[in-house]
């Protein structure tokens, strides 16, 4: 889910930027440093909305650089275990399928796809029910539940399931009933 959240970061600034445009420089550096990054704790930083507060700068011994604690408002995307969301299928293989919800990748293993759906290795690999009424292939929109997240320093991966009530292909009316 997307959140509007206040985060804090210590920004180091070279003394040559000290002057009337110091704040401006802090903002542009913040945007450059932070937008598009991902941390396991706060998720993906999608866009910075503004500066909340700039604290007092502290000169660092030996370098002349000054560290400013900056509080800023931003939009982040952070997936949670137990969350139900919609995603677009990006790749299908016999192990399961990958889907994307905004910046995050979600893997749904074939154990977590309903048992009545079989893998078909056609030109476009897909999972299809025996009567052919429901099909999952690249670009299908699915509703899934996140059951686990794996976090490393710069990336979040999710494991999802569509084996539950009201989950699965969205655009198909029979799946919505």
């Amino acid at each position: 889910m997307f959140f509007h959240i206040i985060l804090e970061r210590n920004m180091q600034l070279h003394p040559r930027h000290f002057g009337a445009r110091l704040r401006e420089k802090l903002v542009s550096k913040l945007i450059k440093d932070v937008e598009g990054t991902c941390s396991g704790r706060h998720g993906f930083v999608v866009a910075i909305m503004g500066i909340e507060h700039v604290g007092k700068g502290l000169i660092r011994d030996g370098t002349g650089f000054v560290t400013f604690p900056v509080k800023y408002k931003c939009v982040v995307f952070r997936p949670f275990k137990g969350e139900i969301l919609e995603a677009v299928v990006t790749m299908v293989n016999k192990m399961g399928f990958f889907a994307e919800a905004g910046p995050v990748q979600i893997f749904v293993s074939n154990h977590l796809i309903p048992d009545d759906m079989e893998f078909q290795s056609a030109d476009t690999p897909n999972y299809t029910t025996s009567d052919g009424s429901v099909k999952i292939q690249k670009d299908t929109e699915v509703r899934l539940k996140i059951i686990g997240t794996r976090v490393d320093a710069t990336e979040i991966f999710c494991i999802g399931t569509i084996k539950d009530d009201f989950l699965g292909v969205i655009s198909d009316p029979s799946a919505a009933v």
């Binding site: 997307f2 937008e35 991902c38 993906f44 999608v46 994307e100 905004g102 910046p103």
Partner: peptide
Amino acid sequence: MPQVFEKSLQYVKR
């Protein structure tokens, strides 16, 4: 813009 921005925008539009 970073890829994260582009992907998020596409996603919310869709």
